[in-house]
């Protein structure tokens, strides 16, 4: 081996060693991030438990986590929690699907049809400004205390969020991409199908993420006042009967449901809009 080659070999070895050191350091930082993310909520729960046990706080109001877990076990085995969860989930999903499909279709249509947009867009914007939960009494008057009124509150909030997002996506569509589409033979229905629709999907998914969270808020509030089942009812009824342990179970379930539904939307988004997530990877 010549001296130069040997030196080059040494240099390669040295670089490899440096890379290994940097990789190990990055792995350590990553492990630390993970353990901190887990340790924080676990410590807070432990602190809560200790505070209640030692009567730093009133355990009748701040039910300690162990008691909450016990209450959750009872609610699950009695079937109350699963049936409340199913009732809320059904209302939310039905309302969300109807509202999202309708809102997206109407928003896209208003985006491409100027006279329709001129006629309806200001009206929809004004209606969106009304908190959808304020519609509930009216819906109850019209539809009675059935499922329809409850589902429609979710439909209303989802519809407007998607209508506004889809409309805005088309209105602010990159004109250079429309021009490129036109230059390569897309017009009319093809322009919509192959350019406008796929290009609007990221904004539509943003709308879905926002409206699933809003939908959960609205259905919970609706069940507070106008339902005798569902997670909202569980929380509200537990407060009225002063059973805070059950109330906490209901609140935690609502929170977990929100996390789970957001994760479902995020998973759908990764499938439907893969290019957004592969950006500069």
């Amino acid at each position: 081996m010549t001296g130069v080659a040997a030196e080059a070999g040494d240099a390669v070895d040295a670089v490899d060693a440096a890379v290994a050191v940097l990789r190990a350091a990055e792995r350590r930082r990553h492990r630390l991030d993970l353990s901190l993310a887990v340790a924080t909520p676990v410590s807070l729960l432990a602190l809560w438990q200790a505070a209640a046990d030692l009567h730093w706080v009133d355990p009748r109001i701040f039910t300690p986590p162990v008691e909450i877990a016990r209450a959750a076990g009872q609610l699950i085995s009695s079937g109350t929690l699963p049936s409340d969860l199913a009732a809320t989930l059904a209302r939310l999903v039905v309302g969300f699907v109807i509202g999202a499909a309708g809102g997206t279709a109407v928003g896209l249509l208003l985006g491409i049809a100027r006279p329709l947009r001129a006629a309806l867009s200001p009206l929809f914007t004004a209606l969106y400004a009304i908190p959808q939960i304020a519609l509930l009494p009216l819906l109850l008057v019209i539809f009675g205390v059935g499922e329809t009124a409850k589902v429609l509150t979710v439909v209303a909030v989802t519809f407007f969020v998607l209508e506004i997002n889809a409309l805005s996506a088309v209105r602010h569509f990159d004109p250079r991409l429309v021009e490129a589409g036109r230059a390569y033979g897309a017009s009319g229905a093809k322009m919509f199908r192959y350019v406008l629709l796929p290009g609007s999907l990221p904004a539509i998914f943003t709308g879905l993420r926002v409206s699933i969270a809003l939908g959960l808020v609205v259905i919970t509030a609706t069940e507070f006042v106008a339902s005798n089942n569902g997670l909202g009812f569980l929380v509200w009824n537990s407060w009225q009967l002063f059973e805070p342990d059950q109330m906490y179970v209901g609140m935690a379930t609502i929170a977990l449901l929100g996390v789970a539904l957001t994760a479902v939307i995020a998973a759908l988004e990764r499938v439907a809009v893969p290019w957004v997530h592969r950006r500069s990877r």
Partner: peptide, 10 residues
């Protein structure tokens, strides 16, 4: 085109 006009979703 100057800014390529490529479709990001394709």
């Amino acid at each position: 085109f100057q800014d390529y006009g490529l479709f990001p979703w394709l």
